[in-house]
Design a protein around this nucleic acid. Sequence first.
RNA 1: GGAGAGGUGGCAGAGCGGUUGAUCGCGUCGGUCUUGAAAACCGAAAGGCCCGAAAGGGUCUCGAGGGUUCGAAUCCCUCCCUCUCCGCCA
Length: 429
Amino acid sequence: MIDLAALRADPDFFKQAWAARGVTVDLAGLLQADEGIRLQKHSAEQKKAEQNQASKNIATLAKAGGDVASAKEAARRLGDEAAVIDRDREQAEAALHQQLLVLPNLCLPSVPVGPDASANRVAGEWGTKPTFAFTPKAHWDLGPALGIMDFERATKLSGSGFVVLAGAGARLARALGQWFLDTHVDVHGYTELAVPYLVTAQTMQGTGQLPKFADQLFACKDDPLLLIPTAEVPVTNLHAGEILDAKDLPKRYTALTPCFRREAGAAGLGTRGMTRVHQFDKVEIVWLTRPEHSEADLLTVRGHAESLLQQLGLHYRILELCTGDTGFGSAKTYDLEVWSPGTNGWLEVSSCSTFGDFQARRANLRFRAPGADGKAGKPQFLHTLNGSGLALPRCLIAVLEAYQQADGSVLVPPVLRPYLGGLERIIAR
RNA sequence: GGAGAGGUGGCAGAGCGGUUGAUCGCGUCGGUCUUGAAAACCGAAAGGCCCGAAAGGGUCUCGAGGGUUCGAAUCCCUCCCUCUCCGCCA
């Protein structure tokens, strides 16, 4: 949610920032609605102030034994008048609120301006593309051949867009998740959380999935709960409505959860294999931090995700998303894309973003820092960040394809072997 | 799912329908005292919004939403949550 007071103060700034994202907003309409609401609020409050005063007078008058009938009538009228104005105002406010909820965040000045993904900037590259003395296979051939990946039976169970992992494949996926989590906790210093996978609509609104992206969420039939599309949702909302102490910031959490995504609009999911599925596991890292640190913290988050890819020995590149490709709530995003030799393309395995105070406003995430005078300062919105660290299926794909051998077997990256009981090579069986 | 109890400020816990946005205590912060600390004493301290350059003024908030009333933390209704007991269950 954007700051309405800031919009009021400098509409042109917002207009330009939204234009950079390719969004046109009816600023005049917003400001007019805002102005009207504030006028209504003021006049209703004046009526209420008069009514409150009248009520006090009635109390003293009644104690003195006077006749209060006409005073009551006058007070009632004031109350009724205030109620009429309030009703109108509440309607206008709700309408304005709905408009604000679907407005995207502004990008930071450092974000490259551009219309779409073609304008994203490659901000770095690590490692080199592996070379093969044979033609490397794609994971959708490799996996089934090794007996560790079963698309047909998954379709039987759940329809298209699902996968069953078996044997060493299932264990390799689990190994990735465990190792990601352990690294974040033991090396990077995160606090691990195990969170609900079903959350309320309000929680979804806090991080920005609702109301705009309702068609991407799985919902329960008989309960008002929704399946999380990422751990970002429950983790970022963990402290919703709270005022945190500045000395407790930054809060740094990590969690491994399944992610459920309808991928509506991606006809047939658009891709073969398990690059895009309705359910996948992901380790997420989330920061709640002080506003002045958030842009620097974003690089730290990205670094934590990168270190995993480096230790896995996977070639990857860093994309700095342009204004037109930056997600709805994000102020700045880096994507990490890993090289997939089997498909000769890049796979997004991580997206690291700072949201500024956009989510904090929605979820009412605040902190209190000591003021200049040493006294407790006013509560203020904190900043939220998150990054995938990392998404499991595409890492699994990259590992299988990059570590495949001429005989169809796959070497296990050394860093994962302890999690696979020492297994060094996955062989068809 | 059934029965009962309850939801008040960081915590604990009062609160006849009328200066109660809220007693007291603990904790927190500032100060006095002290070499320093503790103790003691003094003092400060909820949040949102509106008007205002500011000073200040106003309004709303005692789980949420409605209702009764001139006036609701206090009365009524609905919902949510917590606790205890029972049932079911990984």
